[in-house]
Design a binder for these strands. Sequence first.
DNA 1: AAGTGGTCTAGACCACAGG
DNA 2: CTGTGGTCTAGACCACTTC
Lengths: 240, 240
Amino acid sequence: MKPQYREIAEQIQAEILAGTWPVGARLAPEKLLAETWHVSRFTIREAMSLLEERGLISRKRRVGTIVTSREPADVMVQQLNSMHELLQYPAETRLEMVKADVQEADVALARLLGCEVGTRWAKILCIRVSPGHPPICWTELYVPEDYAGLSDQIGKNGMPAYRLMEETFGLFAADITADLFASTLASPKAQRLGVEPGTATLVIVRRYRDPDGRLFEVSVSEHPATRFSYTIALKRQRQD
Amino acid sequence: MKPQYREIAEQIQAEILAGTWPVGARLAPEKLLAETWHVSRFTIREAMSLLEERGLISRKRRVGTIVTSREPADVMVQQLNSMHELLQYPAETRLEMVKADVQEADVALARLLGCEVGTRWAKILCIRVSPGHPPICWTELYVPEDYAGLSDQIGKNGMPAYRLMEETFGLFAADITADLFASTLASPKAQRLGVEPGTATLVIVRRYRDPDGRLFEVSVSEHPATRFSYTIALKRQRQD
DNA sequence: AAGTGGTCTAGACCACAGG
DNA sequence: CTGTGGTCTAGACCACTTC
């Protein structure tokens, strides 16, 4: 037997899809809906929670319930036991610093980082190594000049750089984006990694932002082909 | 003012972390917890919902509430308005079929597809084109032999292949994984795409499984460098 | 038979956005 | 001031699992 709140959610969802309540419209208050459907407000609230989960409505205290979308969002969930899985490097690998300096963002760097031209960034060059294996990748870390002290911490406890930033400077990575594309490896880096210049590489640009959207770290990693692959696993839920 | 159910959830979470209730232990029934905390069962249930969301407990009707993890899972959510965003090809692009045949999985193919050696698969070769632009990528689709009829549908309505599979054969892609790595492009494909053989490419292998875990489509796409990049955006929530 | 979480009722008070 | 969703109480019945 299907619970009432599911039944009610489905019917309201159908009505939203049919356009009975267009996007932007305000639904009747919960109390009134309860009377209309001849159920208690509790049951209505359970139904509303379902619709909210699906991204169809937005509920605001003292304001009301607004229709925000006509069709349920297709929600894909990636669940990680720890953020480390986002990085996907084996635990025994370590980041080794090669060189650190400070530079002003020119047009090219500003585009890469997604920042303003002229801002000053600490640039930390590293390689990721694994005992008994060839190096995994070449990594360039960019952090705002104020956080240049990060370079002293690289490789500590095997922690990834963004975690060091969180611990050292009290930041929180609330929003992470990763861009992945193919390129070829320039000569000095190729030498460091022990491969031919011009080798195909997987480039991953990761950008870390705090809860206010401020960019506080960008890492650019170049992985020679065959040494690394990146996996994304997503689950999709049926809506009903 | 923090609601009571949040307060209670936090304290129980702290106790789980401290090991007061180890993984596998059963929490007191909701009714008893309500008495212990001097609140109604509703408030306890709200608290339990929070803990369940965080993956700390599992609730089963007529059985009880079991501790399933000591620390909250770091939940990263990728929300897509439609599954098409997973594919990330502009809407005006289209898949064009080049050739279709059937082949038996040898060791190499079985490894690529993540299937058993000896199973038979329809192999459909395609290129993804965009009007007025050079081709975007070379795509090889593999589907179980029973679904070989898919090849007649390729490019229809501009729908991605997995959607055609869903519509045509009543399947549902509940679980999708994507592997990304760099490679170089072999000669015949390079010619088709109008680039030099040996050009660096981004390879994306996508595997689609139905709710029972059965693999029903694998696509292998090779994107010449500079023509395509893949973006992942994740949000992380603080657990209190 | 006893005990469990899921569902549901019929109330209540609150703080504050909006007219 | 009114109306709103968020929080909360104190009950209830159910279907099924476990004893």
